[in-house]
Design a protein around this nucleic acid. Structure first.
Lengths: 221, 221
DNA sequence: AACGACCATGAGGATTTCTTCATGAAGCGA
DNA sequence: TCGCTTCATGAAGAAATCCTCATGGTCGTT
């Protein structure tokens, strides 16, 4: 799967949040901040997917999308929009094979949608179970398993454990966890991460998530 | 996948609930109501899986399981247990590749576990998206899609829609929905089904779920 | 050893989801 | 049409989940 992605976003903070995340997942990215540039880049057909913010200065996101489709460019587009303008957004999608997300969004959600769009059909069979040691997580049923127990998880616990299992053995900072599980604009002063790490530890066992003082947490060794 | 299943359960109501459901899903079932019979049947090795209630009269479920394992019979066992004796149960599972569920349980959950056990590895690629007309449901992300919208669902809404999509065009009675989505012992006098059908209709469109007076509801045509 | 930074944890309030209930509308048979 | 059953729907209470906050413990450094 080739993965050249055009990110159209004027807010610097969000743009780099998206760019860093996508790059870390093996995609090639380019960022542009206004509609005109976005259109000319997208028209080259050099991209496999466009992540498009609707709230752009100048030529707005809708216009870009429309112009793209009028030019018969079929590149899939994932749209970013404000929560309170969802209605307009949905109207704008009509008939398109496009997807949209409301801001603020969690990175993992964006990733899932991007992957969905870039995997045309049944190639690359999806992973539905993550494992580490004797712990496994069924992404479909959203339950974890240990050799001697089946563990039900709440939505947050699930998202957090998924993140750990996708980066086993790696130290994850609270900031990383916040942006991946809670969204990029969540209060950075919160201790939700701590609270949910504790909840997870209670369910899967204390020893499985280690504290790395001053850095964050790590699954396993 | 062969699917001969031994159901060990003394409560008539639950036994037939499980048996009917499993048969409707293509499994061959036998029911026994006490531990001794259960053991002798299971020892024949004629079954691919055992659904075992722990609260049996006479030789209890644990004893059956133990005897089975001592005889080196490796047939996978899915255990049914009361919610307040989970601790004992987990202790009893040690090292086994067995699964357990607390009563009361939803049939779909049991089905998922049975299937998991009977599908040793990666054969039979799992379905992760259900479709009907222009409506699709991604079982992994738990979101529904229409051509012009992506729809977030609550847990109940998701379970109910999944049920509809697995039986498209078929009239489902309130009782069926109750037992599949809410569990076999849910108050039969409740109108939760009505309420959730309405919630679904609001999200996916009224016309997609039809009322069949005196019978229940139906997805589509 | 003492201090400060960092982490663990319980409790409680906010929010979301789930369920019940009451009322009125719609369908069906007499 | 009348009367009865069935269904639709809003509202409100119950329950689960989520998040914040406050307190006390632990670790590392000086």
């Amino acid at each position: 799967m080739s993965g050249r992605i055009l990110i159209v976003e004027d807010e610097q903070r969000i743009a780099s949040f998206v760019e860093k995340g996508l790059r870390a997942n093996g995609f090639t990215t380019s960022v542009v901040g206004d509609g005109d540039t976005a259109l000319s880049w997208a028209l080259t057909g050099d991209f496999d997917l466009v992540v498009l913010d609707l709230g752009l200065p100048g030529r707005d996101g809708f216009a870009v999308l429309r112009a793209l489709r009028e030019a018969r460019v079929a590149t899939p587009v994932v749209i970013l929009t404000a929560r309170d303008s969802v209605h307009d957004t949905v109207a704008g999608l009509e008939g398109g094979a496009d997807d949209y997300m409301t801001k603020p969004f969690r990175f993992e959600e964006l990733l899932a949608r991007v992957r969905l769009r870039l995997r045309p059909a049944d190639r690359a069979p999806e992973v539905t179970v993550l494992r580490h040691d004797d712990l496994s997580l069924d992404l479909r049923t959203r339950r974890a398993r240990l050799p001697d127990a089946v563990i039900d998880l709440t939505a947050r616990e699930f998202a957090l454990l998924e993140l750990f299992l996708r980066h086993p053995g790696q130290v994850l900072s609270r900031e990383q966890m916040l942006s991946h599980v809670w969204g990029y604009d969540f209060d950075p002063g919160s201790n939700v991460v701590d609270v949910y790490v504790r909840a997870l530890r209670r369910k899967i066992g204390n020893e499985r998530i280690q504290t790395v003082r001053g850095m964050g947490y790590r699954l396993g060794v």
